[in-house]
């Protein structure tokens, strides 16, 4: 597990994504310790650990419950498990995976989620990278106006476009395109993710040193070459963090899939889980295991790629 704050040198050396960022982190290292010393942590650490514990309890409850036998879950609190810690079963997981929602086994919803989330993260980021490059380094009329317009589009709530977009997708013109089912979920996610993706990537790509881009032009590189050989490799941290964001967002999404996906055949796990809450609201052995299965991939992604994730959060929001 990587740590969030990377205050220690060993965490810094583990980071080899770009050399410039490495230098930057290194430079800040001596500052961190001193500010902490200056503002003091003393008894404050108990507050921190108290909140950390409070934040963990609900998730721990779910995890423990998912391994308890059905009768125990329904009749006693999960904390009673600590009195009989040997009482562990994997039955909940095996039964939820074969449990059917809308005629489909739960496991097939897992794969639907994978099918939706991977391209749902990659497509918008690929498109946004090209657009962000054009907005930063290509010269064309109306470039600045377009950039402002994209910021303005971040205002549009997803909800505002659901109905018209749904009508658009089900119109005759779109009927002919092979977009039914999962591809229309991709498309919807790509559309909704576009403004923020372009905005964040433009912030990053536009702040690359202009002299490096100019040096490449003097060296004879075309825009495509500069984009692929210089801008993309340098943007790995920004792209990675945005990709993780978008992936988690799409993975956890219910609304877009529900509106655009059509029948249960194309739906992700969140759909199945909500269906189970509605129809089998008391089958907690299924719900806990099901919920944990939906969480497992985000948690792995989150824990293993936390470093990128945090850097993405910080894009443009922290001085220095």
């Amino acid at each position: 597990m990587t740590d969030i704050s990377a205050p220690l040198p060993h965490a810094v050396t583990a980071d080899s994504s770009t050399d410039s960022s490495k230098d930057k982190v290194k430079d800040e290292t001596p500052l961190m310790t001193k500010v902490a010393k200056a503002t003091g942590s003393g008894p404050g650490k108990y507050i921190v650990w108290l909140i950390a514990a409070l934040w963990t309890v609900p998730t721990m409850g779910l995890l423990i419950s998912s391994f308890r036998p059905e009768d125990d879950i329904k009749t006693s609190g999960w904390w009673t498990w600590f009195g009989e810690p040997g009482n562990v079963t994997f039955d909940n997981y095996s039964s939820v995976l074969s449990d059917k929602v809308g005629g489909q086994p739960f496991s097939s919803f897992f794969w639907n989620t994978v099918r939706i989330a991977v391209p749902g993260a990659i497509i918008p980021i690929a498109v946004a990278s090209f657009a962000a490059y054009a907005l930063s380094w290509m010269h064309f009329k109306g470039r600045d106006a377009l950039s402002v317009f994209i910021v303005a589009l971040m205002v549009v709530p997803l909800q505002m476009c659901l109905i018209p977009l749904l009508r658009l997708f089900s119109s005759d013109a779109f009927e002919k395109l092979p977009l039914e089912g999962i591809p229309s979920i991709w498309l919807a996610h790509a559309i909704f993710g576009m403004p923020i993706a372009i905005f964040l990537l433009k912030n990053f790509i536009g702040s690359l040193p202009s002299e490096v881009i100019e040096a490449a032009r003097v060296d004879g590189a075309s825009h495509m070459t500069i984009f692929l050989k210089i801008v993309m490799p340098l943007s790995v941290p920004a792209i990675a963090s945005l990709a993780i964001f978008q992936f988690l967002w799409v993975w956890n999404d219910l609304l877009v899939a529900k509106v655009f996906g059509g029948g249960a055949r194309n739906q992700p796990m969140t759909y199945a889980l909500v269906d189970m809450v509605g129809n089998k609201g008391n089958e907690w052995q299924l719900l806990t295991a099901g919920a944990f299965i939906t969480m497992i991939v985000p948690l792995i992604v989150f824990l293993s790629l936390q470093r990128f994730f945090v850097r993405g959060l910080l894009a443009g929001s922290v001085k220095g």
């Binding site: 704050s5 961190m32 934040w55 993975w251 809450v277 969480m295």
Partner: peptide, 27 residues
């Protein structure tokens, strides 16, 4: 800041960010 175990405490507090609303509802 600079507390012993800072990364762990912050990771625990940060963890729910990765959980879906549906999952959060069940939790």
């Amino acid at each position: 800041d600079r507390m012993r175990g800072e990364p762990i405490a912050k990771a625990l507090i940060f963890l729910p960010t990765a959980i879906s609303m549906v999952g959060a509802g069940i939790i």
